[in-house]
Amino acid sequence: MTETTLSGKIWVLAESGHLVEDIDTDQIFHNAFLHITDIAEMGQYALGNLKGWENFPEKAGSGDIIIAGRNFGAGSSRQQAVDCFVALGISAILAPSFGAIYFRNAVNSGFPLLRSTELDTLVLSSQMETGDRITLDFGSSEAKNLTKETSFTIETMSGVQSAIFKSGNLFGYGKTLNRE
């Protein structure tokens, strides 16, 4: 069984106290780099076209968690917009909602995208800030902000999402299906 708990330092993608909504895949991983097929090369371009976050790759550390606004990953179908975070060692992204294709791409890569409806309020009331350490249990939907000593809830993973996550990625999951 793969661990379903994660903890790490957070980066809050907010502007004047509000989570930035509708961040599209060109802001996450610009189309100028779509020719790249090697995941290791992708990390350096993560959030490279999002105003104020251009040097995110230098600041981010392995195991960090991103907090984003609703409809994160709107736009194109590029897998690179997920893989660039995998390359940096980001361990999860939390948002109120995600773009449909973006969400699938992450699920298929075994990268945890988790939804929480409380994020807007938490960020607005400064109960969630960049640098805080949080811990998430996406088996039980419990989450805690260790720095602020508060708790909040996240949605549990759906059946497929968790099955694919547990198999590593869609390919690993496919192999489990063949064995049945």
Binding site: G75, S76, Q79, I101, N105, N108, S109, L170, F171
Partner: peptide, 25 residues
Amino acid sequence: TDSHMNILGAVGSFGQGMGDVDITF
């Protein structure tokens, strides 16, 4: 691998854009 593949709704087809992992599968 085209996020506007749902354009095919125009002719009553279910089109869907997907990433490269999905398409490989």
